[in-house]
C-alpha cells in the first residue's frame, strides 16, 4: 500500500510544471525516505533529481519500495484540476496499475478523485557523486530567471564565469554581445534578496540557454536558487522545496569541439 497526503498540494503542481517540458515519462520512486525522481531529457543533456522527504507529508505510508511510472503530461492535466490551496492525497495498491489522486478543498466542501493509468517505465539510475564545487552562487530565483530570459533575446548560449569580481553571464548573437555581472550582495534584513558567491577557484563554463530557461520554470518553488559549478562537472541549478527537499537540474556544459 502506498498513500501520501500533502497539505500544500500546490508544491506538487509546481514540481510537475517545472519538469514536464524536459521529461515526458518518469518513475517516481517511493520508499520510507520519501518520494524521489531522477530522469534525463531525451537527448541526455540535462538530468533532473527531485526529493520530497517523507517528513514533509502530513501522512506518509509506503509499505515497500515501489516505482510509479507516469506520463508527466497526463499528471499535469490531472493536477490542473486541483485548486492551488487543495490538499492532495496520492494512493496506489501494491500490485495495481492505477494511481489515485484525491483533491480536498481547504474547508472540505469539495473532494474529487481521479484515477490515472500507470506506465511500465524502464528506469535508469545514474550515480551522482558528491562533489566539492569550485564555485557556488546563491541568488534570488527571480533574478536568475530574468538573466536567462534577457540573454535569450541576444544569443543561444551563456558563458557563466565566476571570479573574485563576481559572477558574469555572457552571450553572443547575430545582433551583438551581452554581459550581466552580479556581485555579492548580502541584504541582512532580506536574506532572500541576497546574492552570495563562494569561490574556491575561478571557473568558466558554457551552457545552452534553452535548458537554463527550462530550469527557471521551477522559480515559483523557491525565492532563491543555488548554482554550483566545477570545471569538470555538469552545473547544478537547485531550487529548495520548503522543508521537504529539492528540485535539482544538472546540465552538461558545451565543450570545445
Amino acid at each position: 500500500m502506498f498513500e501520501v497526503r500533502l497539505v500544500q498540494g500546490s508544491l506538487l503542481k509546481k514540481v510537475v510544471e517545472a519538469i514536464r517540458e524536459l521529461v515526458t515519462d518518469a518513475n517516481i520512486d517511493c520508499s520510507s525516505t520519501g518520494l524521489s525522481l531522477q530522469a534525463m531529457d531525451s537527448s541526455h543533456v540535462a538530468l533532473i533529481a527531485l526529493l520530497l522527504r517523507s517528513d514533509g507529508f502530513e501522512h506518509f505510508r509506503c509499505d515497500r519500495n515501489v516505482s510509479i511510472g507516469m506520463n508527466l503530461a497526463n499528471v499535469s492535466k490531472i493536477l490542473r484540476t486541483a485548486g492551488n490551496d487543495d490538499i492532495i492525497t496520492l494512493k496506489a495498491d501494491d500490485d495495481g496499475d492505477l494511481l489515485t489522486f484525491m483533491f480536498e478543498s481547504p474547508n472540505q466542501d469539495r473532494i474529487s478523485d481521479i484515477e490515472m493509468k500507470l506506465m511500465d517505465i524502464k528506469s535508469e539510475h545514474l550515480g551522482i557523486p558528491d562533489a566539492e564545487y569550485e564555485a557556488v552562487i546563491k541568488m534570488p530565483s527571480q533574478e536568475f530567471l530574468r538573466i536567462c530570459k534577457d540573454l535569450s533575446n541576444i544569443g543561444d548560449t551563456v558563458v557563466i564565469s565566476v571570479t573574485k569580481e563576481g559572477v558574469k553571464f555572457s552571450t553572443r548573437g547575430d545582433i551583438g554581445n551581452a554581459n550581466i555581472v552580479c556581485r555579492q550582495n548580502t541584504t541582512l534584513d532580506k536574506p532572500d534578496d541576497s546574492t552570495i558567491i563562494q569561490m574556491k577557484e575561478p571557473v568558466s563554463l558554457t551552457f545552452a540557454l534553452r535548458y537554463m530557461n527550462s530550469f527557471t520554470k521551477a522559480t515559483s518553488l523557491s525565492s532563491s536558487v543555488t548554482i554550483s559549478m566545477s570545471s569538470d562537472l555538469p552545473i547544478v541549478v537547485e531550487y529548495k522545496i520548503a522543508d521537504m527537499g529539492y528540485l535539482r537540474f544538472y546540465l552538461a556544459p558545451k565543450i570545445e569541439d
Binding site: 541526455h44 543533456v45 535508469e124 545514474l126 550515480g127 552538461a252 565543450i255 569541439d257
Partner: peptide
C-alpha cells in the same frame, strides 16, 4: 562552435 556535452559522460549508470 562548441559541442554539447552529454550527462552520461559525467555520471555513470548504476
Amino acid at each position: 562552435d562548441n559541442k554539447q556535452g552529454n550527462i552520461l559522460s559525467f555520471f555513470k549508470k548504476v
